[in-house]
Simulated scan of single mutants.
Amino acid sequence: MSDVTIRPVVTKADRKQFVDLAWDVYKNDTAWVPPLKDEVHGLIDPKKNPWFGHAKARLWLATRDGKVVGRISAQVDQLVLEHMGAGMGQWGMFEALDGEAAAVLIATAEAWLREQGMTRSMGPISLSIWDEPGLLISGFDQPPMVMMGYHRPAYQGWIVAAGYAKVKDLLTYEVDIRPAPEGVMARLVAAGDKNPRIVLRPVDKAKFDTEVAIILNLLNDAWSDNWGYVPLTPAEIAYAGKKLKPIIFPELVRIAELDGEPVAFMLTIPDVNELIKDLNGELFPFGFVKLLWRLRHPRTKRIRVPLMGVAKKLHGTRLAGQLAFMLIEHIRRDAVGEYQATHGEFGWILEDNQGMMSIAELPGATVNHTYRIYDKAL
């Protein structure tokens, strides 16, 4: 009989314990980057996160002898049901100190999903595909970049032991961005630069809300046929824009226009994890000032491309690849020249998205992290 007790997260104190558990789990792991606690609290707060406008979630804590030893969420998202299939429940925000706590937590999440009428359980998704999807299964030796998760190696075995099987892997690619492109990529970029129909422009932060809408609407269009796709709602687009604004630098974000129409974009951000690791998750009293100062003109060794897309009507055309390479090269020049970055990360990319994998690999990028999503019939 298990000595693990499960209780739902209800009070402010519960939510604090839910967030703070990660510091206990990873206290001896030098690759882990403490997230900003305020960001995690905002993610799970229905009053702040507009994801809750189309989804509901329950959170639980696992305790043993009064000590918190694990946490988990379970969620039902109406947009997931519409786009991934009826009966698809999900779970995430998963952390555990041992396998016994993990088993009880996963079983608790599954029981709630059954109560909601779900017939399949998928995870980890924390809380949506746009947040931190998947479980890290390779690349534990390297700290994750901003907006990507990090997990204990033991989690994979615990999840499989609960009856889960792989449904999809998500890959991130790393590349040394200091060398200029050669060969095919260089020729495509040079030809595109001479094409009067194509204009690559940096985002205009004076019109930030409009620019964010252009980018995220392009994202919804470009990714709409991808596995796992769930559209961002207008409220989520506005919320994402507000969160991203402090880490958006015009030289690192470009929109490609064809005959004056936006048809592609690439969003690149400094690896904010390098800037926050020493803050230990705390913005106050001094962390906020430190972060603001560091963001004035960040010097991070690594940059990350979390989002990139080409309008669906151009998919499968030579122009789609050309626009992607032009965006990569123009941003690379500024990342190296203006920000002194040395390495870049693309991703995540679906393991069967051959087009995006080819784009990532042509400059010489290699996979540095693999994240796995599992599912199980309930």
Rank of each mutant, 00 (worst) to 15 (best):
P8E: 10
V10Y: 01
D14E: 09
R15T: 12
Y26A: 12
Y26D: 03
W32T: 07
P35R: 12
K37H: 05
E39Q: 14
I44M: 07
P46T: 02
N49G: 06
W51Q: 00
W51H: 09
H54L: 10
A55C: 08
K56M: 14
A57R: 04
L79P: 02
E82P: 06
M84I: 00
G85H: 12
A86V: 14
M88K: 05
M88D: 00
Q90I: 05
W91S: 14
A107E: 12
A109R: 03
A109H: 11
E110K: 11
A111V: 11
W112V: 08
P124D: 14
E132A: 05
S138M: 08
G139T: 06
F140E: 01
V146L: 15
Y150W: 07
A165H: 15
L171R: 03
L171W: 09
T172G: 01
V175G: 04
D176Q: 10
I177W: 04
I177R: 04
P179S: 09
A180D: 04
A186L: 00
D209S: 11
D209H: 13
V230W: 08
V230T: 14
L232K: 05
P234F: 09
Y239V: 01
I248R: 03
P250A: 08
E251S: 14
R254W: 03
M266N: 04
T268R: 00
I269V: 15
P270D: 09
L279F: 10
L279A: 12
G281C: 08
G287P: 08
R294K: 12
L295F: 07
I303V: 15
V305T: 13
H315T: 00
T317R: 00
G321Q: 06
F325C: 03
M326P: 00
L327H: 06
E329G: 01
E338A: 07
Y339L: 10
H343I: 06
A360F: 06
G364L: 11
